[in-house]
């Protein structure tokens, strides 16, 4: 069984907006001092599901791939510390400001070069631009069927049973491989790296693929289709009023008075 997981390094999504700033040239959100980047949380859920799935097979290899610029080595190696086998990246200054089309073109070429794979796992969306698009683009480029927001996959005879999250519930699907699966938090929290895993990760070399080795047609494959003109923080002139009171009982009474006065309740 050959498994691939696509991951992205992003500013931590739990960072409060006042600790973020905007790089006006690169049209990106960047964390200010003392805040580190992280692997997109849903991508770590995808790694977790890939690891769980791999436990069903004696012979299984999990390859992590990523594309971008200025990777933080200890961040991007986290899936290795969790138990994945290989890490392959494509890193270039030219990839600082790429859209979902370019990202998917490069990842697809990387998948072709390092694959073929039976299952490709991706996070349901990246927390920086929230596009939820790259897995669909890869699916179309490689003509591999896709199922989104999967929380479980298990082998059953010569098929695979998949649970997909829908609004207010879930669906059970029976599927054949190959497949692209997108994964959200419902797949379970990413496991903590073990000490052995951390040692392993520190020894693991980042395998690098150069852009020039991917046979990309620079006019088509590396041209962004969608252009961001500007990024900004919306103005927030909200002025909160705190409800006063000697104790919680008094505050509760005062809150109900205000609700009445404002016509809210």
């Amino acid at each position: 069984m050959k498994i691939c997981v696509c991951i992205k390094e992003v500013p931590d999504s739990d960072t409060p907006p006042d600790k973020l700033s905007i790089d006006k040239e690169k049209l990106k959100i960047i964390p200010t001092e003392n805040i580190s980047s992280t692997v997109n949380t849903f991508d770590l859920n995808a790694v977790e599901l890939a690891l769980k799935f791999s436990e069903n097979f004696k012979d299984c290899e999990i390859t992590i791939i990523s594309v971008g610029n200025n990777f933080t080595s200890e961040v991007i190696k986290k899936p290795i510390a969790m138990g994945a086998d290989k890490l392959v990246i494509c890193e270039s200054e030219k990839l600082d400001n790429i859209d979902v089309y370019t990202t998917a073109n490069i990842l697809s070429k990387m998948i072709n070069k390092t694959g073929p794979y039976d299952v490709i796992f991706c996070g349901r969306h990246a927390s920086d631009f929230d596009m939820a698009s790259v897995p669909f683009a890869i699916a179309e480029i490689l003509t591999i069927p896709i199922i989104n927001i999967v929380r479980d996959i298990k082998p059953k005879k010569d098929e695979f049973i998949i649970e997909k999250i829908i609004t207010d519930g879930f669906q059970v699907l029976s599927a054949k491989l190959p497949l692209i699966l997108t994964v959200g938090n419902q797949a379970g929290d990413p496991r903590f790296p073990t000490l052995k895993g951390i040692m392993e990760a520190s020894k693991t070399k980042l395998e690098k693929i150069h852009l020039s080795d991917l046979n990309l047609n620079s006019n088509d494959d590396l041209t962004n289709q969608i252009e961001i003109e500007k990024i900004y923080f919306p103005e927030n002139d909200n002025q909160i009023k705190f409800i006063s009171g000697e104790n919680n009982k008094e505050k509760a009474v005062n809150l109900l008075k205000i609700l009445k006065k404002e016509g809210i309740f």
């Binding site: 973020l20 959100i29 929230d130 961001i228 923080f233």
Partner: peptide, 15 residues
């Protein structure tokens, strides 16, 4: 459209 979990917004220019 909003980005970064709605903490920011982006203007997209589409041909």
């Amino acid at each position: 459209r909003p980005i970064h979990g709605e903490s920011a917004e982006a203007v997209y220019n589409i041909h």
